[in-house]
Amino acid sequence: MSDALLTMDDVRASYGDFQALFNITLEIRAGEIVTLIGANGAGKTTTLRVISGLLRSQHGQLRFDGQDISKLPPHEIVVRGVSHVPEGRQLFPHMSVEENLALGAYIGRVRPKLKDLVEEQFELFPRLKERRRQLAGTLSGGEQQMVALARGLMAAPKLLLLDEPSLGLSPKIVEEVFAKVQQIGKSGVTVLIVEQNVVDGLSISDRGYVVENGEVTLQGTPKELLGNEQIRAAYLGL
């Protein structure tokens, strides 16, 4: 398809001698919300790490916005328009909410718009406006996830990578987080989510991919995937 924002074709990657990805093949079109589902250790997080440049791919094609990004360091991939919100939030704990957001707008392209971007995030997450001067490390888990999302959006990305945004949060907060992600998707940002919370993840997605043992084995619409017997047995315990 010609309007693909991100293409991965037979991507392979290893941590030292341990090969984690064997054949990741997927395509994400501009404006979509896509979820990667799969068991623990299947390679979902590794896939995101390869896209954002934290881990080098050793084989295959990795193209973003029409260009090969497989050789770029992480800080240049951010400049191209990929924002990675890592698993476990990974905030800067001794800095205020505002400073965390400011770091999200570190790249030169968006830095002049810092103030506007912060206001945009406060509109999307009013809670953060109340907490703007509080140190990020002292926030609740849900608030930290909001800061992580907002910080990711500060770079005005074309593609937002979300790694386990529901991890460690109460069901009510999870619902709130997914509602925000849906809102972000509607605003025109393409989103790739990695999620163990299969039903919630798929419920806001246009499409999903199943990753097993470092390989993409299945893809489809949320309806198709949730109707699939194997998936129901493996991930939903039905």
Binding site: P73, H75, V78, P86, Q90, F92, L103, Y106, R151
Partner: peptide, 21 residues
Amino acid sequence: MFGRAARAIAQNPYAAPLMGI
């Protein structure tokens, strides 16, 4: 911004490059 980036690296070296640092 330079000082912020330097402190960001100190506080979370894993996340700093993801900010474009």
